[in-house]
Design a protein around this nucleic acid. Structure first.
Length: 501
DNA sequence: AAAAAAG
């Protein structure tokens, strides 16, 4: 019986007849759903003035049916193909407009007025009908970095909440404090006119000693937070799950990986299911390696939908990747100093990723000693400091941020044009192996929403050389080499090629 | 002796 069900709707590149117009590569046009934080462009410009149709690509209405039928999704230039696999016989029609989704007028207003969205991005067009159509099936959804995943599940949560029921109905779990806060901000902005209440469930400020006693029970209709706090709130019976309709895991592959938050996540899922078997589970991430993919497909309901992207098509063309050979640690620091920091604010904002807190502190000290202004974030800082550093960076008060992998996933700051892998991401157990998923997430911090971006990978050891080779092979890319770290010209050429100068 | 979350 089980075998009969799965229908494969392969959404391979189709396009065909539409979109002969040139695509808006240059213009800063808001075509995609996930454009959070576009508020304070200092001295904002005409920007979004015209509500003309911006994307010339008309997303056709189409139906994913339970048959071996090939569905054609029109191709976004930055977003190649998504494979949709639906289960059962529920037909889904991809949403060309937000109106197609039967959203409340208040929610639509939030999308257009607050978020300034115009039409669903591709992943939104495909996934939202799957999320919002009854019977509400579980969903595993993969999509490119910066393609609007957040909007998918935020919109899903907001529109499945019954505004009249003043109890928790949607829960979203994220791997970090920062991501929880960011997602809540998106939700509150999008849901501004809905009157739906929401709350962040992350550790309280460290000043608050007796935090387990001081936290009141949660009444908010949507809750977003980190696993430990959520788990504790549930066990203390301060977070009721009886009315829970949607459970979202952001960065789901990490949330369900054994070296991630697998135990916590499973426990939360099971505790909810015990009380409430109807809760829909949504799993979102840009990455799902084979192991995790197999695992997550076992833990969701049998009758689930899925969306996947081939790994070769995951790295965005709008972000140019480079490697730079640096013979030693000092050289890496000098390269950052002379090739990046000296260019100042012309580049937009920069994130420098390192592998350890120690490495972060070392680099921070080195650059500060050289007289440059950088800030640094990692998990050993107090919550207040972390919040402050992130806020300063998001407000554009700081230009260069050194970070561990706290911010590797999900962190959304559109002004980040440049990402530097000061340390290449490697697997903990096998340091000679690249950590492909982390690599992809890190470089996804640049070039949000089709913007231009560049990545410099610092290659120091023989091991690093091999790691870059493996990364190329895995993603099918050809990361270009910047010939000399000491050549201003070489860097300028690279940055120009990336569209940053 | 990793990142992160929490206890």
């Amino acid at each position: 019986m089980a075998d009969a069900a799965a229908a494969i709707a392969s959404a391979e590149t189709s396009v065909g007849s539409v979109a002969p117009e040139s695509k808006p590569q240059t213009a800063e046009i808001k075509r995609w759903g996930d454009m959070v934080d576009d508020e304070e462009q200092p001295g904002d410009t005409a920007s979004s003035s015209e509500d003309k149709v911006v994307g010339e690509l008309e997303v056709d209405k189409l139906t994913i049916e339970d048959s071996k039928k090939v569905n054609k999704f029109l191709d976004d230039p930055e977003d190649s193909s998504i494979q949709a696999v639906t289960s059962g016989d529920t037909p889904y029609t991809s949403a060309a407009t937000f109106e197609d989704l039967n959203l409340s007028p208040e929610l639509l207003k939030g999308l257009y007025v607050e978020m300034k969205f115009q039409k669903p991005s591709k992943i939104q067009a495909i996934s939202l009908p799957m999320i919002l159509t009854s019977p509400y099936k579980d969903l595993i959804a993969q999509a490119h970095n910066g393609s609007g995943k957040t909007t998918c599940f935020v919109l899903g949560m907001l529109s499945r909440v019954d505004p009249n029921v003043k109890r928790p109905q949607a829960l979203c779990i994220c791997p970090t404090r920062e991501l929880s806060i960011q997602n809540l901000e998106v939700l509150q902005k999008m849901g501004k006119y809905t009157g739906i209440s929401s709350e962040c469930a992350v550790p309280m400020d460290s000043g608050n000693n007796d935090r387990s006693r001081s936290r009141p029970p949660i009444f908010a209709q949507v809750v977003i937070g980190t696993p430990g706090t959520i788990k504790r709130l549930m066990s203390q019976k301060k977070l009721s799950v009886v009315d829970m309709k949607v459970l979202v895991f952001d960065e789901a592959d990490h949330m369900l990986a054994k070296d991630g938050f697998q135990d916590d996540s499973l426990r939360i899922m099971k505790d909810i299911e015990r009380v409430n078997g109807h809760c829909q589970v949504l799993l979102f991430s840009a990455t799902f390696d084979e192991t995790v993919k197999n695992f997550v497909s076992r833990i969701v309901r049998k009758d689930y939908n899925q969306l996947f992207v081939k790994k070769e098509e995951l790295s965005l063309d709008s972000v140019k990747q480079y490697k730079v050979y640096c013979p030693d640690e000092m050289t890496k620091i000098l390269a950052i100093k002379d090739r990046i920091l000296e260019l100042g604010e012309n580049l937009g904002q920069t994130i420098i990723f390192v592998n350890t807190k120690r490495s972060a502190s070392m680099l921070h000290k080195a650059l500060v000693d050289l007289g440059y202004e950088v800030t640094t974030i990692h998990g050993a800082l107090t919550h207040e400091d972390r919040d402050k550093i992130v806020k300063e960076f998001k407000d554009g008060l700081t230009q260069v941020l050194i970070s561990t992998d706290v911010l590797a996933r999900g962190f959304d700051q559109q002004q980040v044009n440049l990402v530097i892998n000061y340390d290449l991401p490697v697997k903990y157990e096998t340091p000679s192996e690249p950590h492909y998923e982390v690599y992809l997430h890190r470089i996804g911090r640049a070039g949000r929403f089709g913007r231009k971006g560049a990545v410099f990978n610092f290659v120091m050891t023989d091991r690093d050389v091999m790691i870059m080779e493996k990364i190329d092979k895995y993603f099918g890319t050809r990361v270009k080499e910047v010939a000399s770290w000491n050549s201003e010209e070489d860097f300028k050429v690279a940055l120009k090629e990336a569209g940053l100068l």
